[in-house]
Design a protein around this nucleic acid. Structure first.
Lengths: 122, 122
DNA sequence: CGCCGACGTTTACAGGCGTAATCGTCCGAT
DNA sequence: ATCGGACGATTACGCCTGTAAACGTCGGCG
């Protein structure tokens, strides 16, 4: 099931800080988004029905924990974008960023190093 | 203004095949999506109000033409994803694909060539 | 032992989206 | 001059999303 933009912000804090209560999530994400606690609770509940998080009762409260791996989510999102916009291939994306002058020398160096490592591994 | 997923499919055919009528768009995109002509017309009209396409009257019909460049759209979408998932940097995305074993030797070769060209240009 | 308050659950509601049918108009063929 | 059909414009409608308030329950303090 699809995770929406707002929901993904909640997932991000669960991934980053681990299992926590609705209050904690609200404290972590609320300021940026200026969401009320109620909003965070709604999002957590939607994520629950989507089985994207689990809830373990700890006394009066629940601890919410991610049920899907961030890597999986990231892969799906990235693959989707690359499929939609770049014919499923990664190189054109990199190329696009290069043409749009969106790459700093540091970026280029970093990429170079990365690719060389990949190539060595081969 | 935001271009939705369905709308972007319409934009893609306008970008690919140039200005054309609603019928043409429907013929180009309809089969894949199994949309009726009515649906395509709705999407074109929404794109019109979003100023993403223009309409030039040719006799009885309109020719719809893109009003935003594909490169701009692509940049926004890509940048958005990279900002949301990879802290705004491109290398981690590439790295992620590598780790997910989503890169073929051809991909690696292509990237290598690309990066070397970029590096030369520097 | 009863009540209050903290939680989770349920309900709300406007706007966007996907998908389409219906309406109104105007061109072109009789 | 008329009428039907082809187009765009308008209207429809249910689902998802963002954002949140209202409701109900249960545990702990007094």
């Amino acid at each position: 099931m699809r995770i929406s933009a707002a929901e993904s912000l909640v997932m991000e804090v669960l991934w980053r800080d681990g299992p926590q209560t609705a209050e904690d999530v609200a404290a972590a994400v609320g300021p940026d988004q200026s969401w009320t606690v109620a909003t965070v609770k709604t999002l957590l509940n939607r994520l629950l029905t989507k089985k994207a998080v689990s809830a373990e009762r700890i006394g009066r409260r629940y601890l919410y924990a991610p049920q899907i791996a961030r890597a999986d989510y990231v892969r799906e999102e990235s693959q989707g974008l690359i499929d939609r916009l770049f014919d499923g291939r990664l190189a054109p994306l990199v190329s696009h960023f290069a043409e749009a002058k969106q790459l700093s020398p540091e970026d280029i160096a970093e990429l170079k190093k990365l690719i060389e490592e990949l190539d060595d591994g081969r």
